[in-house]
Nucleic acid binder design. Sequence first.
DNA 1: TCCGTGAGTTGGAAAATCAAACCCTCCCCT
DNA 2: AGGGGAGGGTTTGATTTTCCAACTCACGGA
Lengths: 156, 156
Amino acid sequence: MAATKDPRPCSIADALALVGEKYSLLVLREVCLGNGRFDQLVRNIGAPRDILATRLRRLVDAGILTKRAYSERPQRFEYRPTRAGLELEPVLVTLMAWGDRHLREDDNRPMVVEHACGNELLPVVVCQACGDAVRHEDLSAHPQAPGWTVAGPTAA
Amino acid sequence: MAATKDPRPCSIADALALVGEKYSLLVLREVCLGNGRFDQLVRNIGAPRDILATRLRRLVDAGILTKRAYSERPQRFEYRPTRAGLELEPVLVTLMAWGDRHLREDDNRPMVVEHACGNELLPVVVCQACGDAVRHEDLSAHPQAPGWTVAGPTAA
DNA sequence: TCCGTGAGTTGGAAAATCAAACCCTCCCCT
DNA sequence: AGGGGAGGGTTTGATTTTCCAACTCACGGA
């Protein structure tokens, strides 16, 4: 999976190296929903069991999931998100909202998420400093390391 | 790439079916930075040229990228994000922030993004209704379709 | 004419995925 | 004591993808 010669140091690439493989983010979805058992994951995700076992090992090694026994004798396990894993949930809900908007005609969404405030969750990515929603035109990229060149209006 | 029997209708899965293949989101990163030419993409992403060609076709077909000629005679092309593509940028910056926080010791980030407000962009995913940052404990999932079962505190 | 650039395509070896079957441990039923 | 689950994986062999290097084609410039 390692992009053998990615010349760009990049946290997006690094993050995707951990969670960008097929099924990994769906595993996280299920685990965040509380469906952390192997057979649940197989059924709900539709992944081959061997692949799923590989992904789970990777995610545990990466510190995104933990494996806990929910029963000794017989030993039975459950995967749960770590804090780092939970912090990927905003990525999931943002991706879900994008899919709802662009991949479906209005309002046959497969799932609605409710926020503690009582409203349906419509996730918006904002700038922490000013609170404004992030729009492409308002961003400019500043590479900190060699290997980067950016063109156009976002140039350093 | 299609998960042949995913029993869960899910916009996260659908979105990942389009942009979840290896390199696709890195293509979007580059294109959002203004580096939309084939050879730039090859160099900056480090992907095999044939795979990249396949990904670009898929992303154009999906309406996430467009292919424009920036020169006739000789014909030279450039890929640019569509509106739908630009709306994935919040996912990218959120993922980048996660990688910066969890995958690097403090402050050798490869790239800093500046927001129009003058501050460094720290993306936060908030609930549009109440403005609060999204935290796992505040969410509850409500499946709208058959095939879903959720366990635990987020149950329907 | 020869070289270089941009934008891919082609061919074959190497790696990852898939589906189905299998295994092991325990528990329950009789 | 035997048989039948369930849970949590591993094994096997066929199918797909990826990977890499080399190649193509169209131009433009020296």
